[in-house]
Every structure is written in structure tokens, then in C-alpha cells.
Write a protein that binds this DNA or RNA. Sequence first.
DNA 1: TCCTAGGTACGACTTGCATCGTACCTGAGG
DNA 2: CCTCAGGTACGATGCAAGTCGTACCTAGGA
Lengths: 99, 99
Amino acid sequence: MDLGKVFHALADDSRRRVVAELAADPEDRERACGSFDLPVKKATRTHHFRVLREAGLIVQRDHGNGSAVSLPRQDIERRLPGLLRLLSEELKAGGAAPD
Amino acid sequence: MDLGKVFHALADDSRRRVVAELAADPEDRERACGSFDLPVKKATRTHHFRVLREAGLIVQRDHGNGSAVSLPRQDIERRLPGLLRLLSEELKAGGAAPD
DNA sequence: TCCTAGGTACGACTTGCATCGTACCTGAGG
DNA sequence: CCTCAGGTACGATGCAAGTCGTACCTAGGA
């Protein structure tokens, strides 16, 4: 787990939104990749999921026909305590930081 | 305060190191810009300080002949609780994440 | 079997960024 | 005054990254 990779991954709005939405779900449900309303095309979405995966921020499960992502909350909380809280709070604040 | 700007700023090793060293000082001492041992030239250092400043992660005071930076710890802790702890722990761990 | 939908792989394009050289500015000390 | 050291401003450069089109693959349904 590299902080540089993590911060780089979270510097992008689309990627940060994915992690934030996953973090905002208290039940840690798995979500289909297409269930995120991102303003980018398919290929770009695949790219973003790859970056998040390589940063260790999501786990991707292949469904054959489709794939779904989930949040390794335990790992992240252990190595980066407080991070998920920051992200979900930004989401609640309507896409802006809680200032 | 924009999370995107903050994470982008912290994605760079040199910049993350500056904030981490400032955060690791419990007395919040002001430090001269040249006191950081960064593997870059002067112009690049100026650039990094600008990015950190615009992200709200440091406060820069101009000394005429030189300038110094300090950490607005209260602001950061209020808006981004837990962030400084992550950075200073990475520093203690010797430049690697505490995995 | 054909078609459709969700994802991926690959390449191309464009923008952004980290880096640096150089010139310039400012204050301190001879 | 001159010189030097610490910073900044500006432009150039090389590389990384975001975006997308296209082709391809894999179920599932008609």
C-alpha cells in the first residue's frame, strides 16, 4: 500500500466518487461497475477502476458477463484510518469539502 | 478547501514529505523553505510550495530575503481530520506506508 | 444461432504536470 | 557599491495521465 498511489487515485473526481459512494454504504454492499453515474465512456471507466484497484482502494470481482466492485473497508481503515470518513463526508456535503 | 486539490498535492513524494515533516513536529515550528532536503532544484521547489499553498496545506510567510512555511494544523484537523496522522506515520515508517 | 449488453485491451490524442535553466528580485555583509 | 544567497517568474521540455474509438470477449435471451 503506497500513499502516493492512494492519493493519486483519489485526486480524480470520478475515482474519488466511486470510493466515496462505496464508503457511504454502511453495509458494504458490492456494486456493479455500471451502477456508478460517471461522466465518462466505458473505456475510461475501466481505466479508473484499474487505478483504484492497483491502489488497493477497491476489490473487483469478475462476473463473467459483468463485474462488480466492493470496498475492503477493514484493510483501508487499518492502514489509512479516517480516510473513508473524509470521502463519505465530502459526498454528503454535495461534492464539496465540508468547509 | 478542495479534496481534489489536496489529494493531488499529496500525491507527489516531495510535497508529501514537506507536509509530513511539518506535521511530525508537535510544536508547529515554522521552517525555512530551504531546510527541506528535497531532491529537486530551486525552481521546482518553488513550484511544489505553490501547489501546497493553493491546496491550503501550508502557509508561507515572506521574509524578504527568504521565506518560511508553517502548517495550519487547526484548519487541517478541522476539515480533514486524521490526515496529518497518516502523513507523519508514513514518515516515521521510513518513507513507506505502515503496512 | 444471432444479437445485445457489460467489460476489457489496445492504440491515439491531448492535456497537465514535474523538472529545470535562465533571468530577475531582494536583503545581508563586505 | 558590489557580491552572494535564497526565492520567484517565465519559458521549454519530456513524460505521465485522462479521454475516447474501435475491436474483441463473455454470458444471457429471443
